[in-house]
């Protein structure tokens, strides 16, 4: 579904990613783990074409997207939920929900989305940024389920949220996976990650340094503690 190889990315003079390589198979939930500054978010932004300069290869459904504009990358079937959630203050909840363009048939329809996220229906007319942090995160996930994109990039969806909301997001991710979506997830919290993911890639200094299947996560704890410094 997604094959990344030899990915390099730069912000101005600083070289952030040094040959990142990993792949995500259809129907999987895969995480990128790593410390702050390891290059996880930059990897996500590079896949979406949101960094000033990048090189290497990113294949989505077999199609090379490294040279495409962000809107064409989205139209290749990728839904993006950014780290800062990206809820628009000047748009209502419904307008936020309807903003991303439909890129393929087969996205969830509004009744299904409201069934998954009942809060959003109640607050449909509110200003997007008047929602609580958890509701904003739900909105940020909900709006990319509508578009028909089958590959979802979720950048730290649990960041700064209360444990009960984190559990709810965990349920949501398992629900999306059950519906056949493929998810690439950036996480700092590997305890959360192990409740939803099939495989974990570990990043350090702008490179992927290890891959741990979820089943072996328990056995690899010591190694993981070393990587993450927890």
């Amino acid at each position: 579904m997604l094959e990344v190889s030899g990915l390099n990315a730069w912000y101005g003079e600083s070289h952030i990613l040094h040959g990142v390589a990993f792949d995500v198979r259809a129907g999987e939930v895969v995480t990128l783990l790593g410390r702050n500054g390891a290059g996880k978010t930059t990897t996500m932004k590079s896949i979406m074409g949101l960094v000033p300069r990048r090189a290497g290869s990113i294949r989505c459904n077999g199609r090379e997207t490294i040279a495409l504009r962000p809107d064409l990358i989205a139209r290749a079937g990728i839904g993006f939920c950014p780290e800062e959630r990206g809820i628009f203050a000047s748009l209502s909840v419904t307008e936020n929900l309807m903003l991303p363009r439909v890129v393929a048939p087969g996205g969830l329809d509004l009744p299904t989305i409201y069934a998954l996220f009942p809060n959003l229906k109640e607050r449909a007319g509110s200003q997007g940024t008047k929602l609580s942090g958890g509701e904003q995160q739900m909105l940020a996930i909900a709006r990319i389920l509508r578009t028909g994109a089958r590959l979802l990039l979720l950048d730290e969806p649990t960041e700064g949220l209360a444990p009960v909301i984190v559990q709810q997001i965990g349920r949501t991710i398992r629900e999306i996976k059950a519906r056949g979506f493929t998810v690439l997830l950036v996480e700092q919290n590997f305890r959360f990650a192990q409740t939803v993911a099939d495989r974990h890639y570990v990043m350090e200094h702008g490179r992927v340094v290890d891959m741990i299947p979820n089943a072996q996560l328990g056995a690899s704890m010591e190694k993981l503690h070393g990587y993450l410094g927890v």
């Binding site: 979406m48 074409g49 949101l50 504009r69 962000p70 809107d71 990358i73 989205a74 139209r75 993006f80 950014p82 990206g86 628009f88 203050a89 000047s90 748009l91 307008e95 309807m98 903003l99 991303p100 363009r101 890129v103 990319i144 578009t147």
Partner: peptide
């Protein structure tokens, strides 16, 4: 209108709107 909400969103954060499949240029 929809085009209006897209315009308002792009005024706030154009790169993200483009990552949602809108031809911002």
């Amino acid at each position: 209108t929809r085009i209006g909400s897209t315009l308002r969103a792009a005024t706030e954060n154009a790169p993200l709107v483009q990552a949602f499949g809108v031809n911002v240029p």
